[in-house]
């Protein structure tokens, strides 16, 4: 297409020239990337353009593309509203409590499961258990919500069984007391993700060198000692990576779970930042307010996740190379 300009070899090819050269060779590849770029521009960068909604007074009838140029900007009005009405503290409490209680259950469970699976010597049995353990991951939250509403209700099988065993006298009201609902979410999240997360730990266990085990056996370490002194310490890098990632995702305290399982009695406890933004944005038609809350979450979450990822690459850099 273009002839190379004289002298270009001396100063090195410019961006444009490098692109043209690459374009000639890789037309086909650019053609393959093009639909993806268009898709991302519309469905990922388009909503980012829409961030301005948080800074105007957007009404449902307004035009999305032109409002940016036509509407008056209201500054940080919606953010001030969020921080001063008192909702902010409550929503953050709910978000963090839900995440932390979930973390309390869902973080150790897959580690334990992976260690158990690794220690089990009945090959078929352990394969079966492993397959069963990640079945809940495949089931939609709609089904899970139905299941939990049934088995955890005051007359459900969990309460009945605990009563029959004499552990409790009166049923635990998971769906009527806000704090218990956090616990319920922790249990539900753990149940759904345990098998899935165990896969990563199992992979890490597989990569532990067998030499270490052999020398420990020669030294007379029994199986439990080997788990405690070899398998678990060798898992620690993976554990810390997973922990950092989990902490980085603290603001993602769920969305579907709350929408499906909560009710009006406990909504002041079940509302996390995502459900709050959604309910105000769509339920009350306060589009701008919902956008502002959503934007606040996106920005803080972005900082959290990027920080976590930086830590992870440091951990990986040092221990896993």
């Amino acid at each position: 297409m273009d002839t190379v300009r004289p002298g270009s070899a001396l100063r090195g090819p410019t961006m444009g020239e490098r692109f043209l050269k690459s374009w000639k060779r890789h037309k086909f590849l650019y053609l393959l990337i093009l639909p993806g770029v268009i898709w991302a521009l519309i469905f990922c960068y388009g909503p980012m353009y829409g961030i301005y909604i948080a800074f105007i007074d957007f009404k449902p009838r307004m035009d999305f593309l032109s409002s940016f140029f036509q509407q008056k900007f209201v500054g940080l009005k919606w953010f001030e509203y969020f921080f001063t009405t008192g909702d902010f503290l409550r929503i953050m409490r709910n978000t963090l409590m839900t995440s932390l209680i979930t973390l309390l259950f869902s973080f150790p469970a897959p580690i334990l499961l992976a260690l158990l699976i690794n220690e089990c010597r009945l090959t078929r049995f352990k394969k079966t258990i492993q397959t069963i353990s990640y079945l809940p991951f495949f089931i939609s939250w709609v089904i899970c919500a139905n299941i939990f509403l049934t088995i955890m209700s005051s007359t459900g099988v969990v309460n009945e069984a605990l009563k029959a065993l004499g552990i409790i006298r009166s049923p635990i009201l998971f769906f009527q007391q806000g704090r218990l609902f956090w616990v319920l979410l922790g249990i539900a999240n753990t149940w759904k993700g345990m098998g899935y997360n165990a896969i990563i730990y199992l992979a890490a266990i597989t990569s532990i060198s067998s030499d270490i085990y052999e020398s420990a056996m020669i030294d007379g370490a029994n199986r439990l000692q080997r788990v405690v002194h070899i398998t678990f310490p060798c898992l620690l890098p993976t554990v810390s990576v997973m922990f950092v990632l989990a902490v980085g995702g603290l603001l993602n305290a769920g969305f579907e779970q709350q929408l499906l399982m909560s009710n009006n009695t406990i909504i002041t406890y079940s509302d996390v930042i995502d459900t709050y933004a959604y309910r105000y944005g769509f339920g009350s038609g306060m589009y701008s307010y919902g956008s502002a809350v959503g934007l606040f979450k996106s920005v803080v979450n972005f900082i959290f996740v990027i920080t976590a990822n930086t830590f992870v690459s440091r951990i990986r850099g040092r221990t896993l190379v």
């Binding site: 993806g36 770029v37 991302a40 519309i42 469905f43 990922c44 960068y45 388009g46 909503p47 980012m48 353009y49 829409g50 961030i51 909604i53 948080a54 999305f64 593309l65 995502d274 933004a277 959604y278 944005g281 769509f282 589009y287 919902g290 956008s291 959503g294 934007l295 979450k297 996106s298 972005f302 996740v305 990027i306």
Partner: peptide, 23 residues
Amino acid sequence: YFFVFTMYFGGGIVPYYMVLKTV
């Protein structure tokens, strides 16, 4: 970077809805 950035940051659900409406 163009694609990976979209995994970490988004405009939020309200602008997303507006985009779907616009297209």
